[in-house]
Amino acid sequence: MSSVTWKPYVWPNLCRATFEEFQEIEALWGVSLPEDYKKVAAMYQGCTPHPNGITVLDGTTGVGILLTVSTNSTMPEESVQWAYDFLREHIPPGLYPFARNIGSNYFCFDYRQTPRNPRIVFIFPEGEGEDAILFVADNFTRFLDSLKD
């Protein structure tokens, strides 16, 4: 993995996610989250990465926050479950958010074609159909490796 550093955003200090919290999300969504994601999110949920730039289509956007897994967040709108509830009627089944950009668009795991190793896609909630879903990386590790200044 690349040398990404993380700065707390939701809480003033790092707040670890528990094994049980990941299990709860996996049960609600009916998926197994990638192990590389769980390792990072367990330590850095609710944090912003540096570097945070990533190429999407022909441009660059910034990864604003790694959404929280914990339900005790002081900012519930920054949680994976809140984002999923917000997006689910606008996106196809099989897409699950894990990060937000510096605006209000989301990076999601795409389980539609690869249920054991989901790809990473970028979602424009205002978009229509597949045109609103842009490929970003083959997996979570490659997503982190793609971050740049």
Rank of each mutant, 00 (worst) to 15 (best):
E128H: 12
S73M: 06
E77F: 09
N117T: 14
N117F: 11
I120E: 02
M75N: 10
D110F: 05
D85R: 08
N105A: 10
Y96C: 10
I120A: 01
H90R: 14
S104M: 13
Y106G: 07
P97Q: 05
Y111G: 09
T71R: 15
I120W: 02
N72V: 12
N101F: 01
F107Q: 01
Y111K: 11
C108D: 04
L67I: 07
P76H: 01
T114N: 12
S79I: 02
C108H: 07
N105F: 00
I123E: 05
Q113S: 08
T71K: 15
R88K: 15
I102H: 08
W82T: 02
D85N: 12
P118T: 13
G94P: 10
P92R: 14
N105M: 05
V69R: 02
W82M: 03
S70Y: 04
P92S: 14
P97H: 02
I120L: 01
A99T: 06
M75E: 10
H90W: 04
F98P: 07
A99Q: 00
P125G: 06
T68K: 09
P76N: 02
C108I: 06
R88I: 12
P92K: 10
R112K: 06
H90F: 11
I102E: 12
P118D: 15
P92E: 09
R100Y: 02
F86P: 06
P118V: 14
T114K: 08
L95N: 04
P76K: 01
R119I: 01
P93M: 00
